[in-house]
Design a protein around this nucleic acid. Structure first.
Lengths: 123, 123
DNA sequence: GTCATCTGGTATCCATTGGAAACCTGATGA
DNA sequence: TCATCAGGTTTCCAATGGATACCAGATGAC
């Protein structure tokens, strides 16, 4: 048995990395790490996330054992999504990513402006 | 000026998160954190990454100030990509992600098998 | 009685993206 | 004279993404 290696396209970790290195996953697990939430609540919490993609993303998170899905036969139906212990370990890994983006926003925007100006000058 | 918030679709951090939460970015910065590398060297290092996408990804990493690109007029031409200090802070944030994928591979695969079996049983 | 509303989805359609493969330049070696 | 190298760009097709419409089933407003 070979050791896991995400640099190898055939290693299962590659596909796992593909799923977890995803902006919607980062944001959804960020919310669910705080508390259990309902479908439309998640949708409202993550601006710009369509119903279709939310549904797909939650399904794959559930399949991977990162969240659980509970249906309550109320009217209208209530569906609650909760993070699992495994999901919590991933959320702890993903949170720094969101925080990095937020704290380096200005530096990145400056770098982009500089790059674009150089490109402009070269043309 | 509002504080950065990746949950808001219009915040620049959302777009930044979209770029950094990407499997190719994780793997490329993982390699470049080790040492400066050439174009085809990176391609060989990241199995399954096409030339087109490598070129695009490197270009956006350069624009964001995460890597630098140096061209040497040898024959054939030599192009070296090096990580920047800013890129190094991101690489440090992304590495745990790759390690998480590698260390939880078995748990995830087990969860998937369980899920699929339950789905099968329900059908 | 009838219509609009709620939830948690699917179904459909089109635009964007991704990957595979071919092509390109320009010099060099067989 | 032809193949080869690096570092791309171009082209083509398949897969994904997002916007929108639709669905069930009950409930509340009118």
């Amino acid at each position: 048995m070979n050791s896991p290696d995400a640099f190898n396209a055939l290693c299962p970790t590659r596909q796992i990395l593909d799923r977890i290195a995803d902006k919607w996953t980062v944001l959804l697990l960020g919310l669910l790490a705080g508390r259990t939430m309902r479908f439309n609540e998640l949708r409202r919490g993550v601006d710009g996330l369509s119903q279709k993609v939310l549904s797909q993303t939650l399904k794959s998170l559930e399949r991977d054992g990162l969240v659980t899905r509970a249906v309550y036969p109320t009217v209208p139906v209530t569906v609650e999504y909760a993070i699992t212990d495994l999901g919590r370990t991933l959320a702890a890994t993903l949170e720094p990513l969101r925080l990095w983006a937020e704290s380096h926003m200005n530096v990145i925007e400056q770098a982009r402006a500089d790059f674009d100006r150089r490109q402009q000058a070269a043309a």
